[in-house]
Write a protein that binds this DNA or RNA. Structure first.
Lengths: 235, 235
DNA sequence: TTCCATATTTTACCTAGGCTAATTTTAGCA
DNA sequence: TGCTAAAATTAGCCTAGGTAAAATATGGAA
């Protein structure tokens, strides 16, 4: 590891007196966190680049800066991990993103399938605007897809849920989150009332990874394919 | 003037097939337009830099790029002007900014003294989000300070108004716009009901650029100092 | 087990848009 | 007219992006 001088003032970094992160840096940290969550710990450079709509070389360079600043650990050709410091910043960014998604749906009347896309229009918000969005949405704890919104103090709720495709037959519960950003899937799920918070009962599952029959709201029955069922998590 | 190759793809620029402007470029154009309006045509580099919170050398470099792209004209050491193409882009950006200000006040319940500041949080909006803000505000024609919002087709209303400090005594009309972004001035003006749209009559003006007595709403009388009266325009 | 083809990652070098420090130009005043 | 102060510009560096080419790792066949 090379010696490190702040890119902002060309002076050695004093612990506890660090320069603030830039917006791109925060976005990298947040995306590393998300991939770590979904991908079982491994965060390959190219996947990170792809998800951020950035070229692989750009990601490599940024990762090196983040490692030097102490936000990441890294093994070349293996992958990236977040340090505790990195996780803290990632959750701050994720909080902002999920609050914006709620704001888009609750206040600006966008559909939940549009929320993720348009949330990119609201990056790098001041604390005052973010707090106002929080207030106007009634201090929500989940984003429109059901993901928990990290609290201001940096804590995040750990959900005890599982994909519908894996829960035992007969299980009653409610939909916790939809782990997909596909517009079409989200529109279809909203149509058949499969949204976070909805009461649900797994009635039966066809063999060989077949479709699942569920009872929604204690009344309507729906059949859900295996692919969709993997994205629907219940608690 | 040097020959010009697109900075995006290193290819000569084909007329009619130009690369889209970046967000910083649009902001420069909008600020040049504003200064031109307020400063009687002259746009000095350093004033532009100051207003954009950018260093003078950064402004010089950007201006050169904008000149090469055909958005600006320029005489070194003299100042900048906008071409027709530049005005078109400037008005697009100004429309977005003023719509955001309305949104902040009408939907997010910020005070008009906060609107200008927080509008910087909402730069580079997608057309869909901008249109939604427009709709949620009821398709407004003026920003909270009274400035006309350019239409989608690029036209802008030309107001026939004048600073209160210059209108004849006895004139009746309404406040058109407040040409100041000072938090304190705006808060004070809101307190004494001097906001755009308010009916007003200039009752009397003390000599030697002295304070002005005005009747607001046909009833309450207020005395306004010369400095403030220069920022209050009436139509 | 070794070697090769392929996929992944990294290096090298370009651009835009910022910065500071130093220089040049212009303009105002004695 | 000449000097000084302000304004504008040049020079050279930084971050964050890009493409093209080189380097490294990995899985399959001999």
């Amino acid at each position: 590891m090379e010696t490190y001088y702040s890119h902002l003032h060309n002076q050695p970094v004093v612990p506890g007196l660090e320069p603030p992160l830039t917006q791109p840096q925060r976005e990298y940290l947040a995306e590393i966190y998300r991939i770590h969550d979904e991908n079982g710990g491994k965060v390959p450079t190219n996947l990170l680049a792809e998800r951020l709509h950035v070229s692989p070389p750009a990601a490599v360079k940024m990762i090196r800066r983040l490692v030097c600043d102490g936000y990441c650990g890294r093994e070349p050709y293996k992958g990236v991990t977040l340090t505790d410091k990195g996780v803290r910043e990632a959750l701050r960014e994720i909080r902002s993103h999920r609050l914006v998604e709620r704001f888009l749906v609750d206040v600006m009347n966008f559909g939940w399938h549009e929320a993720h896309q348009y949330a990119h229009d609201f990056e790098d918000l001041s604390a005052e605007v973010e707090d106002r969005m929080d207030m106007l949405c009634g201090y929500p704890t989940r984003c429109p897809h059901g993901e928990p919104i990290p609290a201001k103090d940096g804590t995040i709720e750990v959900l005890k849920d599982a994909p519908m495709a894996k829960v035992e037959i007969g299980t009653k519960g409610q939909i916790s989150r939809i782990k997909s950003h596909s517009r079409d899937k989200l529109m279809y799920l909203a149509e058949i009332q499969m949204i976070p918070g909805q009461k649900i009962e797994v009635v039966n599952r066809a063999p060989f990874n077949g479709p699942i029959r569920v009872k929604i709201n204690g009344r309507d029955e729906q059949v859900v394919g295996a692919e969709l069922a993997a994205d629907i998590w219940v608690e």
